[in-house]
């Protein structure tokens, strides 16, 4: 069993190459790679981006079952987008109607947009899952501090990310408590699930408020100031000083920015990444 390190979303083996990178490289990776699906409409490019991300998951030794946990979310996301585009995507006479359901027309052009947007979102979600699976709160704080962001911004970002993990733990605790008293939402029909949702939400919100109070007391009791300053001096950055930016970090950051610049250039100069260049636009019906 390899030694594992905790990440924001689970565990990562210590031998993962991701640990040899400086946190600033990982934070910049998130910023640059999440910009990619926003700049790229071309579904083939986003699909390639998703495959690239899956390869990165493998290379970073992230347990792929993390993604499997989001399987239903990916499926639901597609249906939500497809339904939204079908109902609110509009209609023009030149549209190809695939199906009529009473007054509702299911058009290929709307469905095509749904596929485009879906693939953009899938890539964005994979980037976020990768980020959370490979980062620790400390990496976020160190990464942002290296970028010279104010201490309060860095610390709040780290604390907010950690609160997601804490809320998930609280949720499971509440679920176990509900199960122990013979209430298992998984066993109930959908309508009952919705009705009983409050039984989870109310204690979850209550716990979140209590945690906020406890964290606030703990911060104050350890001389924390949001300004990062104390009487007569500046807060020490002990943890960030433990990290060194190496050649591999510089090379990766350079590649990421070059890639971003290239994407912006080809998109705005030649329009190669626009939706109209997709194979989906060559599909004809009838």
């Amino acid at each position: 069993m390899p030694k594992m390190r905790r990440s924001l979303l689970g565990y990562l083996p210590e031998e993962s190459p991701i640990f040899s990178l400086h946190p600033v490289t990982k934070v910049l990776f998130l910023l640059v790679v999440s910009a990619y699906p926003m700049l790229t409409q071309l579904p083939e490019a986003n699909l390639a981006g998703s495959l690239f991300m899956l390869a990165l998951f493998k290379a970073a030794k992230v347990d792929l079952s993390v993604i499997k946990g989001y399987k239903m979310a990916f499926v639901n996301l597609f249906f939500v987008i497809a339904i939204a585009y079908t109902f609110f995507g509009g209609y023009r006479p030149e549209y190809t109607v695939l199906l009529r359901l009473g007054p509702i027309r299911v058009c290929w052009e709307n469905l095509r947009w749904a596929i485009l947007v879906y693939l953009q979102l899938v890539l964005a979600i994979l980037v976020i899952i990768f980020f959370l699976s490979t980062m620790r709160e400390r990496d976020v704080v160190v990464g942002l501090r290296t970028l010279r962001l104010p201490f309060v911004v860095c610390y709040l970002a780290g604390l907010s990310l950690r609160s997601i993990g804490l809320s998930i733990i609280d949720f499971f605790t509440i679920r176990e408590a509900e199960k122990a008293r013979a209430l298992d939402l998984a066993e109930l029909p959908f309508s009952e699930k919705v009705k009983k949702f409050g039984l989870y939400i109310v204690p979850l919100v209550g716990l979140a408020i209590r945690r906020a109070e406890e964290v606030s007391n703990a911060l104050d009791s350890r001389a924390f100031r949001f300004s990062g300053l104390f009487k007569g001096g500046k807060r020490t950055d002990y943890i960030p000083k433990k990290y060194k930016i190496r050649g591999a970090d510089v090379a990766l950051i350079a590649i990421m920015f070059a890639f971003l610049a290239a994407i912006v250039f080809v998109n705005y100069q030649y329009g190669w990444l626009r939706a109209e260049n997709s194979l989906l636009y060559r599909v004809r019906f009838g």
Binding site: E137, R162, R211, A223, T236, Y238
Partner: peptide
Amino acid sequence: ESQFLSMTVEEEVVFGLENIGLDV
């Protein structure tokens, strides 16, 4: 658990010391 502010023991112990500006 209510007083932990960090995700590793080291950060937890160091947190207050950074706040009062001690040297490394």
